[in-house]
């Protein structure tokens, strides 16, 4: 491994942030189009976290969330997750269904949340890939409601076999002026991070 996520230069850090912002911006645009409501996703903060601390950093291991997980593979391997609090998931479902009240656990709403995660992650990853001219694909999404720690521990276990730390960023979803708690989380393996940062170094 050439790069260590703990030892990023300011230049690499801000380039990464910029790329993530472009990706997240594109993701928000595609989502807005799909649900026909204005969604923006606020600038993420980039952090480096020890794998074991990720559930706490993401809001607490026992917090019940709607999680959509996709596997990323190609030039970069890893995972991308969309985690929404139950309230946020309900807000989105209500907006799309144009309902006063909704049950987020219905199969219809579950597959809708799954598709939203897929669109967000898909446009995010493809803009990242396009910008860095990398070949990256994402798997079909898997959705579940459960405790945040339980949703992500399988992935953290897999990551922890290769890395100690991971890049972590928070996002805030804003739906028509209302702030919603939500997290788009990417975990890339060390080889993927090497490629990503290598490309950034070539460009700067």
């Amino acid at each position: 491994m050439r790069y260590k996520v703990r030892e990023l230069t300011d230049m690499q850090n801000s380039a990464l942030k910029e790329i993530i912002n472009i990706g997240v911006g594109n993701a928000a645009t595609s989502l807005s189009k799909m649900i026909k409501h204005q969604i923006s996703i606020d600038i993420p903060e980039l952090r480096v976290e020890i794998i074991e601390k990720v559930p706490e950093a993401a809001g607490g291991a026992d917090k019940v969330v709607s999680g959509v997980i996709m596997h990323v593979d190609g030039d970069i391997n890893g995972y991308i997750m969309m985690l929404l609090s139950e309230d946020s998931a309900a807000t989105i479902c209500k907006a799309i269904n144009e309902e006063e009240d909704t049950d987020i656990h219905t199969p219809m709403n579950q597959s809708m949340l799954e598709e939203i995660g897929h669109i967000l992650a898909g446009s995010y990853i493809s803009s990242l890939a396009e910008f860095l001219t990398l070949d990256v694909k994402i798997s079909p999404p898997m959705q579940t409601f459960d405790m945040l720690g339980a949703i992500m521990d399988q992935i953290l276990i897999e990551m922890s076999q290769n890395v100690e730390c991971t890049l972590f960023f928070d996002t805030v979803f804003v739906l028509e002026g209302k702030q919603m708690e939500g997290i788009l989380l990417t975990l890339f393996d060390p080889m993927g991070m090497d490629k990503l940062l290598g490309r950034i170094d070539e460009m700067t």
Partner: peptide, 24 residues
């Protein structure tokens, strides 16, 4: 008790660990 963490306690303390998925 966090992920990959352990602790010992005596009466009347309680111990908890949160959000176990494939961890044990």
């Amino acid at each position: 008790v966090g992920m990959a963490d352990s602790a010992v306690a005596k009466k009347p303390e309680k111990l908890t660990t949160l959000g176990l998925g494939s961890c044990i």
